[in-house]
Each structure stands twice: as structure tokens, then as C-alpha cells.
């Protein structure tokens, strides 16, 4: 790729460096692979810096970078330069540390269910639920209407819940009361438990 020294720099290096951890996270959840994700981030940085004159100051740099990264990823997939990894690929990291065994088990269940989602559902959950972007920004990144993003988020939520409740994850855990049952407890029962606990205290 030819770098043109004459083009104006609308992207500050420090701002870009601040985006790198977020690019790595988004790439990790698109590719499911640490090395591939970092390669993708590297390609994205090169493309972003060489196209820096196209970035409009005052707009969201992270969203712009996410757009470049996502386009690059799907270009790579289309060219079959990468092979998407299966759920059980060992390079998909296990959680490092969680505050309790219960939290760790919940997190493990979540991750397994998450990786069973369709790719376009995973990406909207990460964009909306984790990276702090709005539905409108996610729609621009994914090049689709805002309503489509909302529908994908809604379907992803339902699919996650279905997988956690009925899917192949059931039976992996041996707690007396699986967390998903507590999750779906009617609110009245949750309040009743809270009142009971407060009375005992």
C-alpha cells in the first residue's frame, strides 16, 4: 500500500492508539481468534492511517475505525483468506479470573452460548452491549437500517436465552438451581426472596 505523504492528517496518533484496545476486542469477537484478530487490527490501522484524510474531525473515531475493521474482516472472509473457527477452538480464551466460582460458571455459560450465535448477532451485541455505541452508530458501521440492528439485538437476546435455557449447555452445570432459572424468576418471587433475606438479617 502506497502511503501518500501529502495527505492531510485528520487522525491523531494518540487518539488512534487509544482505540487499539477496542479494535482488538471487536476483532476478537468477530474472528474468535487472538492472532487473526491482531492481524486484522494491524490491517485496519494501516488502512485507517492511509485514509486518514477521509475521517471527519469531530465525529466518532472509534466508530469509523470499527467500520474499517468490519469491512476488512468481511472482505477477508469473502476471499476465503481466513477460516472461521469452531466453538471449541482452544484459542478462544477462557476467562482469566472471575470474582467467584458462581460468576465464573455464569461467564463460561455465557461465552459458550455467545459463540453459538450467528456472526451478525454477535457483532451487534458487542457494538451495542459492550462497546458503548448507539443503535444509529452500529447501523452505520454495519451499513444497514437502525431497525435491522434492533431486530438483530432482539433476536440475539432471544437466541441466547433459548440456548442457555434449552440448548446444549443444559446439563453442563450441577448447581441445585441453574442461574438461568433465577434469571427468569418472576419479579414477585425475587422480591419475596429479598424480603425474606432482609427479615433474617
Amino acid at each position: 500500500m502506497v502511503l501518500e505523504a501529502t495527505q492531510s492528517r485528520n487522525v491523531d496518533d494518540q487518539d488512534l492508539i487509544a482505540c487499539v484496545p477496542h479494535l482488538r476486542a471487536f476483532a476478537r469477537f468477530l474472528t474468535g481468534n487472538r492472532e487473526r484478530a491482531d492481524d486484522l487490527v494491524q490491517d485496519t490501522i494501516v488502512r485507517a492511517l492511509t485514509a486518514a484524510h477521509q475521517f471527519q474531525r469531530g465525529t466518532n473515531l472509534k466508530a469509523w475505525m470499527f467500520t474499517i475493521l468490519r469491512n476488512q474482516h468481511y472482505n477477508d472472509v469473502r476471499k476465503a483468506r481466513v477460516r472461521l473457527q469452531s466453538l471449541d477452538d482452544p484459542s478462544i480464551d477462557e476467562p482469566a479470573a472471575a470474582p467467584s466460582q458462581e460468576a465464573r460458571l455464569e461467564f463460561g455459560d455465557f461465552r459458550r452460548a455467545f459463540w453459538q450465535l450467528a456472526e451478525n448477532q454477535r457483532e451487534v451485541l458487542i457494538l451495542i452491549g459492550a462497546s458503548g455505541l448507539s443503535y444509529e452508530q452500529a447501523a452505520r458501521i454495519c451499513n444497514c437500517p437502525t431497525g435491522t440492528i434492533k431486530s438483530r439485538v432482539s433476536r440475539a437476546r432471544r437466541e441466547l436465552l433459548r440456548t442457555l435455557r434449552d440448548g446444549p449447555l443444559v446439563g453442563r452445570r450441577e448447581e441445585d438451581e441453574p442461574f438461568i432459572e433465577r434469571l427468569t424468576l418472576p419479579l414477585g418471587r425475587i422480591f419475596a426472596r429479598a424480603v425474606e433475606a432482609a427479615a433474617k438479617a
Binding site: L16, V20, P21, A25, R28, F29, A130
Partner: peptide
């Protein structure tokens, strides 16, 4: 859960080669 998973990657040290590339 999403934030936990996302932040786990965000909080990782960024490889030096990526920072060097930017510079």
C-alpha cells in the same frame, strides 16, 4: 456478561508491534 468479556480484551496489554506500527 458482554462488558466483562469485552473489557477482558480491552484490558490486555497491547502488543508493542501494534503501537510501533501506528508510530
Amino acid at each position: 456478561q458482554l462488558k466483562l468479556a469485552y473489557d477482558e480484551v480491552v484490558d490486555e496489554p497491547v502488543p508493542e508491534e501494534l503501537l510501533d506500527l501506528v508510530e
